[in-house]
Each structure stands twice: as structure tokens, then as C-alpha cells.
Simulated assay, not measured.
Amino acid sequence: MNLLLTGSTSGIGLETLKALYPHFDRFILPVRNMEKAQRLASQFPKTEKLDWVEMDLSSMKSVQNAGSYIKENYSEIHVVINNAGGMFPAGKKTDDGFDMTFAVNHLGHFFLFKLVENALFKGKAKIINVSSEAHRIASFNTEDPSLKKSGNTFSAYCQAKLYNILFTKELKRRFSEQGISSFSLHPGAVKTAFGSETDPISKMIIRATQLFFISAKKGAQTSIFLAKIPSKELKNGAYYVRKKPKSSNSASSDPENARALWEYSEECLANLGLL
């Protein structure tokens, strides 16, 4: 069994990797910092199980290169955990011209799916997207789906977390008959380095409230649960909190929003000549 996990070098991603290490034969690990990844490899008894792949979710060219490598080397992928993400200053742009929060939390993972979808179909993959309860204060803005006009760091992050759920639901709608199952989750308010790249005010608020946050190990538990439990015992397309399905907000439950986000994401990539 092959598992693809983003954001595996710190926080809940690393805890997820540690917990699932005995349960999978091979781990495909796209990471931004290869040096950090290779230092972490010494924590695992069989480093040959870990395939570190350089990938920066903010760069669609980097995602394309990583996807090409994965496609060439893996004919089947059985579980995907899209764990990487972050909160970034409002207005911060990628080299491709996208809002950083939109690219890292949604578009990069969307593009990676498109690149390796044949291996996912062959492996009848389970796709797990790490979202957040922060999605509840977001709505789907058809005038600015890529968040370019968002002037608020936290608001943009909340919308990106809404996108994780919409992506999950559209995956179910489009591909459940081909054996794909998809799930989103809230890991809890986790005490990690999250928010380290955001603006000073948001960073101060995050640090001030971290006294009440849970450990990364606890925060990883729902991701681990979803990866280990057979898909037939889970609710396809559902949003999970503390290992149980929970209703998400109305914007995330609107199939037209999910369809619109998917089509807009394809348009973004097509405009770069990538689709």
C-alpha cells in the first residue's frame, strides 16, 4: 500500500507519518525543504520506505515536476493526505500571480490530484483533506474565488479551508463510481508552528491563544483514523471532527459551489498552460 502525504516534516503531518509508518509499504512525501526531510529520515528504521519528493505548493511548476516524478514511479496510490497548508499575509502573491493562501491551501493540491489521478483511480484511493472549523465563517465568493481581493488574512484562510471541504465533496460527486472516496476533517486547534508566515497581528493572536491548543499528536488523530479505517466503514464525502462525521456550513454543502470551484481551479491551471 502506498500513501502520499504532504506537509510531513512538522506538526500534525509528522505525527501522522510516525503513526502510519508501520501500516504502509511506501510513503510518497512531497516536501518544500529537502534538507529538513532528510534529517528527519533518521527517526525511521527503514528509510527506504520514505520517498521524499521536492515540491513547493505555491509554485505550479514545482507541483508539476513532483507530479511527473510520482506518475512515473508509482502506478498505484492508495491513500492521499493533503495535510500541508498555512496562513499567509493578505495580498501575498506567488510567482504565478496567485494569492499565496489560495495556492498553498487549495490549488497546489488540486493540481497534484490532476497529475496523478490515474494512479489514484488504479489504487481506488482514499483522499483526505485537512480542513478546519474556521470554514464556518466563510462563504463562497463567486466574484473572487482566488482570494486576490481579500484584504484580511484570517478571512482568506477561512475561505481556503472552505475550499478543502468543497474539493472533498466534488471528488465524491465526480469519482465515487470509479472507486475514489474522499473525506475532510478538522484536526482541532493544534499547537504547532502554524501561522509563522502570517502578518504580525495574526501571529500575535495565534500565539496568545495557543495556551488552549492541543498537541500535534492529538491533532493528528482524525487523519490517522481516516487513513486506517476501510472506506466502506466511513461516510464518503463527509467532514470529520474527533473521528466522527459532522455537518459543515451551508456554503460547503452547496454542490454548485463545489462545481464552480473545480471549474475555476481548472481555468487557473489552463491559463498557465498546465492543463
Rank of each mutant, 00 (worst) to 15 (best):
G123H: 03
M87V: 15
K124H: 13
V80S: 06
I81Y: 11
H106V: 00
G123L: 04
G85D: 09
I81D: 09
V116I: 15
N82D: 13
F110L: 02
N83W: 07
M100G: 01
D96I: 04
F113G: 03
V116A: 05
V79G: 07
V80W: 09
T101F: 14
F111E: 12
N83S: 13
E76V: 12
A125P: 07
G108D: 07
Y74W: 14
H78K: 10
F113R: 10
A125V: 05
M87S: 13
N83M: 05
K114E: 15
G91V: 08
V104C: 12
A84R: 03
G97K: 11
H106Q: 00
V104A: 10
A119E: 05
L107S: 06
F98N: 04
A103K: 03
I81H: 07
F98K: 04
D95N: 13
F88H: 06
F111Y: 15
H78V: 06
F111S: 07
D95E: 15
A119G: 12
P89T: 05
V104T: 15
K92G: 00
G108F: 11
G108L: 13
L120H: 13
G97L: 02
A119H: 10
A103C: 03
G85E: 13
F121S: 01
A84F: 07
N82Q: 13
H106P: 02
D96T: 11
G85Q: 11
H109V: 01
I81A: 10
N105P: 03
A84M: 09
T101S: 14
G86K: 11
N82P: 00
Y74F: 15
D99T: 02
V116T: 15
F98Y: 14
A84W: 05
L120F: 14
K124L: 02
A119Y: 08
L112S: 08
N118M: 04
